[in-house]
Amino acid sequence: MTPPATFRPHERINDPKDFRRAFERKRSASDAAMVVYGAENGLGYPRLGISVGRKKIRSAAARNRVKRLLREAFRLGKEELPAGIDLIIVPRGARLTFQEARASLPALAQAVARRLGARTSKAPT
Rank of each mutant, 00 (worst) to 15 (best):
L116V: 05
D15N: 15
L48H: 05
R54E: 12
I89S: 02
A83T: 01
F74S: 06
P4M: 03
G53D: 07
P16H: 12
S104H: 14
K26P: 13
L116E: 03
A111C: 07
G49V: 05
A113L: 03
L76W: 10
I85F: 04
P91R: 01
T97C: 11
T97A: 10
P3E: 13
E24V: 15
D31W: 13
V112P: 02
A111I: 01
Q110I: 09
Y45P: 02
I88L: 15
F7I: 08
A29P: 06
E79W: 01
R119I: 09
K55L: 06
G84I: 03
E80G: 01
R68E: 10
Y45R: 07
L76K: 13
V90G: 05
P106H: 11
A73H: 12
L43N: 04
R114Y: 00
R65H: 11
Q99I: 09
G49L: 07
A83H: 03
K78E: 00
R68L: 11
E100S: 13
Q99H: 08
G84D: 06
I50V: 13
V112S: 05
A113C: 08
P46S: 05
D18C: 11
K56N: 09
K26Q: 15
A62T: 04
V52R: 00
T125F: 04
I13W: 05
T125D: 08
P124V: 05
Q99C: 03
P91H: 06
P3H: 12
I85W: 04
L43D: 01
L76N: 10
E11S: 06
V112M: 09
L70N: 07
G53V: 03
R27S: 10
A83S: 08
A60K: 08
S104M: 15
I50N: 02
L116N: 03
D86M: 02
E40K: 15
D15E: 13
Q110S: 12
S59W: 01
E24I: 12
K67E: 00
I57V: 14
T2Q: 11
L43V: 02
R20H: 11
A61M: 01
I57T: 09
P16E: 08
L87A: 10
E40H: 13
K17D: 14
G42K: 07
A61Y: 00
F7W: 05
V90I: 15
P16N: 11
Q99R: 14
K55D: 05
F7G: 10
P3A: 15
K78S: 01
S30M: 10
N14L: 12
D15G: 03
M1E: 08
L87T: 05
V90W: 08
